Computed example of a mutant assay.
Amino acid sequence: MSTLLEMSGVSVSFDGFRAINNLSFQIGEPELRAIIGPNGAGKTTFMDIITGKTKPDEGRILYGDKGISLLGLSESRIAREGIGRKFQKPTVFEAQSVRENLAMALKNPRGPFDVLLYRKTRAGAARIEEIAARIGLSEALTRPAGELSHGQKQWLEIGMLLAQEPRLLLVDEPAAGMTPAEREKTTEMLVDLGRDHAVIVVEHDMEFVRRLNCKVTVLNEGSVLAEGSIDHVTGDPQVIEVYLGR
């Protein structure tokens, strides 16, 4: 497994408050990683920095085989380099079918005629079928996205990210608002994606994190407090004190 993303000495302040404080982090490819921590630990800012939404005050972020610096790159350029983000609230095109949502997201030439022509190609159609199978929506391809359950909309959005062919996926609180059956299926989906992508899952639900059965990074006050298996971090006295509160 090679390192895909490496952050070192990253700090960012907002109005004198240090949201991220000398943070160092790395993830390999493929790898599934969970990020946990109390409210205000810097989890959202961490994702904002990776995707270029927030520029750090100091530190470096290297990405990819050639170790390109993400600092100074625009959000759209970072997305084109293969970093995709799934926000907590799903944003799908409700009036369009599942198939159309996936077609619009496919990584392809972006001119208006290119998009119209590409959707009809055999390769595009095959890719849509492949993604739908992976996110468990093969049976729902013709349904309007607005008719899907909350969990299915989350899966569709993960599928739309996959259509962009990312190498690194950032997924924010995927288990929130799901039924137990949907949560179980989401766990399986993320574990599957972690076999051929780098996937960072930010999550509050410890039971969900436990079922992911992956390395866990605990953030607190903008720094890494602990890292290791779920049993290792939940047994750490500092983690218990600041986060688990037992």
Rank of each mutant, 00 (worst) to 15 (best):
T3N: 07
L5Y: 00
E6R: 15
M7S: 07
V12F: 08
D15Y: 09
R18C: 12
A19N: 07
L23E: 03
S24N: 11
I27N: 00
P30W: 06
E31H: 10
L32Q: 06
R33H: 13
R33W: 01
I35R: 03
G37D: 01
K43M: 08
T44P: 07
T45W: 03
F46K: 10
I49Q: 09
I50H: 06
I50Q: 04
T51Y: 01
T51C: 13
G52M: 11
G52N: 11
P56E: 05
D57H: 12
E58S: 15
G59E: 00
R60Y: 09
I61F: 02
L62C: 12
D65Y: 01
K66Q: 14
K66M: 02
S69N: 10
L73W: 05
S74N: 01
A79G: 10
R80P: 10
K86P: 00
K89M: 12
E94V: 10
R99C: 01
R99D: 02
E100A: 11
A105F: 00
L106M: 14
L106V: 08
F113Q: 10
F113W: 14
D114L: 08
V115Y: 10
L117A: 14
Y118L: 08
K120S: 10
K120I: 06
T121C: 10
T121N: 07
T121G: 12
R122F: 06
R122H: 12
E130V: 04
E130T: 11
A133C: 10
A133W: 00
L137N: 05
S138H: 03
S138F: 04
E139R: 13
A140T: 12
G146H: 05
L148Q: 09
L148S: 07
S149Y: 03
S149P: 01
H150M: 13
Q152H: 12
Q154P: 04
W155F: 15
L156D: 04
L162W: 09
A163H: 06
Q164V: 04
Q164F: 05
L168A: 11
L169E: 03
V171Y: 01
V171C: 07
D172C: 10
A176M: 04
M178T: 08
M178N: 02
P180G: 01
P180W: 03
E182H: 02
E182D: 13
R183Q: 14
K185A: 15
T187A: 15
L190W: 06
D196K: 11
H197W: 00
H204Y: 08
H204P: 04
V209T: 07
R211I: 01
K215A: 14
V216Y: 09
T217E: 07
L219P: 05
L225F: 09
S229D: 10
T234L: 15
D236M: 00
I240V: 12
I240M: 13
E241Y: 11
L244T: 02
